[in-house]
Write a protein that binds this DNA or RNA. Structure first.
Lengths: 349, 349
DNA sequence: CTGAAAGCGCTAACAA
DNA sequence: TTGTTAGCGCTTTCAG
């Protein structure tokens, strides 16, 4: 409705010549100085209300918006939070890993609400030593949230020493220096083992890669209980690509299913795969083998039997991450936040 | 381990004074001009190999990295692609919507590989008319990928007229002007209905909100087949928050299950909910009611019975989105890409 | 309340 | 091959 033909030749021959691209352009049109436009658009109170409104109207009319790059450069802050997902040895998958993606969704909500933009980056630390420093040093972000420690605990610790506005989703180690938010994985492991044993299992298996700290802690917790209650437990390492996991589990179960009667899966995703492989092998769940997962993904209640699992409150986690980060952006040295996991009993144990 | 006390007074009194923060700092230390440092760090060939290497080493040593904001401003390009997820009327959930999140994961992969960063934004268009213009006009991104048309088809069309580097995931309408990548939803709907009817159903129900174009097309496809094959079909509107959907489905199924024998769920997520509600009601799947979903999420093969569904190739979709966007960034006016959906027969129909 | 002017840190002509 | 210089577009003192 507002294109050239009419305006052009007759009424305002200038208009077509220079589209309004900069604050200076707008200033010229408005008959004020660039500084005033800047102040008006920023809603600063020291501009005459009338001029401010006039300028704002003009900006709207022309669809003008101050260039953020220039603004960020000048103000030395970006209003952007980096969210980085380090992929450990298992370069494949994990992006699609439901848990992280769900967490990311909630993070997006929380950050948006606080007026921050999100710069998302997936990195393969093994290919790029400086993944974290590079992101932080890029000058593109005011702070960073790391989703998952992967196998990068040491690197994260190092960086944390010299950089305050960073919060990490992961496992809390005694005495660590980086600020972390996450479930008490060891406790979660205990709850899982307790449940398996209470359901009658005595020969347990832990399915999952024990290299990442989160998983290691879950396994350790399960060991605590197994040892103290006279049950046995063995770790069966899987790798995160789903296809590979399925194969590994299938093979293990085919060969050893007589030797175990309880499975603690390091994640719900692994538990689902396990459930499926057991079904293929005709092994009854929970009668012959009981299963407990970890995470309580939405679909956990939709399998058959529905998955007994350890619940992590993802939303609370996202909220905690953002809250702590914002406080760190203010200069506060926040403590880590350890959330209590919860056993959710359903059909598999 | 590396703080002042030692270094300060004795060894290198200069070091503490000015940390290397800018290219000019580094130039001073290297004894060259800022221009040279800039060129060296950019790996430009017109710098003496030796000086270049020396400068790069120096930069590494000091952990220096050119400020991206300044660089982007100067070069008038950002190396950042915006990814925006518009949330329609259903403000809740959907972020966590598995399909979109999985797509996002693959997009992250593709874009990272091409050297782009990702700026992620979730918006509620109904609260903010200018969600798309604002993002594009921010000067923070070189191009934008819109994940899902939501109820914003018209707005996207408008923007597309004046902005080339935009690609949208969604449904293709005859004669539309924005570049879209997505499955042939209508065909998918046909496949679904065909399968239900082939499996013996004649009184079909479509579960899902028919307002979004993607869903509407799926429904339309199902209607095509139902009409031509003498089956009936009725749409049952659900709303995307999972809890609400569950309630709505539960209620509908309790009251009307005698009247239908086939369900075409607009998405796998809805299909899972449906499966669960039917189980609660003691209605047998597929014996009493058959179900076909849409998407083929990874968990689709893990339900019991495993879900018969229409597969969208998410990875191909992500690849297409990025490929087309990059070409548009080169100025090419690309056509839309419609991917063929595929029926995957499992246990529910 | 508004204008003028000085950069934020970098890159890319243009010279040398 | 390198140095010098002029901005990218904005914000913010400092004057008026």
């Amino acid at each position: 409705m507002n294109r050239k033909s009419e305006l052009e030749g007759s009424i305002d021959p200038e208009a077509k010549v220079r589209p309004i691209r900069t604050i200076t352009d707008l200033a010229r049109v408005a008959g004020v100085s660039p500084g005033t436009v800047s102040r008006a658009l920023a809603g600063k109170s020291l501009v005459n209300t009338k001029t401010r409104e006039r300028i704002q109207a003009l900006a709207r009319e022309h669809g003008f918006q101050p260039n953020q790059m220039a603004s960020k450069l000048r103000r030395q802050k970006t209003g952007v939070i980096g969210v980085v997902i380090p992929l450990g040895h298992d370069r494949e998958q994990q992006v699609s890993d439901s848990f992280f993606m769900t967490l990311l969704g909630h993070l997006a909500d929380e950050l948006t609400e606080k007026g921050y933009d999100i710069m998302l980056r997936r990195v393969i630390p093994d290919r790029d030593e400086d993944w974290l420093d590079r992101f932080i040093g890029s000058g593109m972000i005011d702070g960073v949230i790391v989703i998952g420690q992967s196998n990068q605990f040491a690197r994260i610790e190092e960086v944390a020493d010299g950089y305050l506005p960073m919060v990490v989703w992961g496992n809390h180690q005694e005495g660590q220096r980086h600020c972390v938010v996450g479930a008490d994985n060891r406790l979660g492991g205990r709850l899982a083992a307790e449940r398996l044993i209470a359901a009658g299992a005595t020969r347990l298996a832990f399915f999952g890669d024990t290299a990442p700290f989160e998983f290691a802690a879950r396994y350790a917790g399960a060991c605590d209980i197994a040892n103290s209650m006279g049950a046995t437990i063995t770790a069966v390492s899987t790798h995160l690509s789903p296809a590979q996991t399925a194969q590994e589990l299938s093979r293990f179960l085919a060969e050893h299913h007589g030797e175990i009667d309880g499975v603690f899966a390091a994640s719900d995703t692994i538990a689902f795969t396990c459930l499926q492989e057991l079904r293929k092998l005709g092994i009854a769940v929970p009668d012959q083998i009981k299963i407990v997962g970890f995470d309580d993904l939405p679909i956990a209640e939709q399998t058959l039997p529905a998955l007994t699992t350890i619940r992590q409150d993802i939303q609370a986690g996202a909220h905690g991450l953002v809250d702590l980060l914002l406080r760190r952006l203010q200069g506060e040295e926040t403590e880590s936040l350890v959330l209590p996991p919860k056993l959710v009993v359903r059909g598999t144990a």
